[in-house]
Amino acid sequence: MNATESKNAFSYEDTLSFENAIGFENKYLYEQDPAFSPEMNRKKAIEVKDLNLWYGGNQALKKIYLDIPKNKIFSLIGPSGCGKSTFLRTMNRMNDMISNCRIEGKVCVDGENIYGKGIDVTGLRKRVGMVFQKANPFPMSIYENIAYGPKIHGVSKKEIPGIVEESLRCAALWDEVKDRLKEPALSLSGGQQQRLCIARTLAVKPEVILFDEPCSALDPISTGKIEELMAELKKDYTIVIVTHNMHQAARISDCAAFFLSGELIETGKTAQIFENPQDKRTEGYITGRFG
């Protein structure tokens, strides 16, 4: 399907909102790329519109428009301090816990603005899970770590063992821990702990999983395992990942967005961003990293 066809197939409003959403400067990128046709636009998991965020008087995110497609891996790249983590955390409202943080604009998950009135934040966080940079299993047993989420969301006791096993299997950890579920989670290796955290997130059955530099503390083998796992997970989940590792972003993600000092500079298919960046700054960052 090419761009003209897809334009014909959808109403004018559809196209307009799509153009707004991606920002005009990036429009041509999408038009050349069937993966970003308006049809694709309909399958978006998250829509960010005119998002601005301040920490006190310091603006950390400036006028962000971004769509995140369903069942894809979306990577956020950019230099340290450019606002990647901040942006990621707006998507499950983790910034609410920071007292001097102020947010304007819209972030829609499944079409619903999560900063709108009457939003149930705990319900939102159940739908949009998060895995952190440093593996942070609770100081409890492996089993209890996974069971924690379902328990607080009122899943009946009978179902929990099944959920625990399923989540651990999904996170490719079951075979390694099935005989030691009662042992403390902190006795696992770093890579296993990170997969445990992924399993813990899966246990509440989210739609979207946010990863904030999940492999930065891991060795290449554990990293490989987690990357494989993500590729597997994207069949059922939408994945957004912040990474400093350009190779990783190029390897695993379908789409990418480049941030620089709080602004979204460029977004598109990963191959496009890495092989043929449209913005000088993106090119500079990527080539700088590759040497």
């Binding site: 966080r125 607080i152 955290c197 509440v204």
Partner: peptide, 15 residues
């Protein structure tokens, strides 16, 4: 108690 535990728990939707 490390703040990571709090974050992890809140991110799972715990109050």
């Amino acid at each position: 108690v490390p703040k990571e535990y709090r974050e992890a728990s809140r991110a799972l939707g715990a109050t």
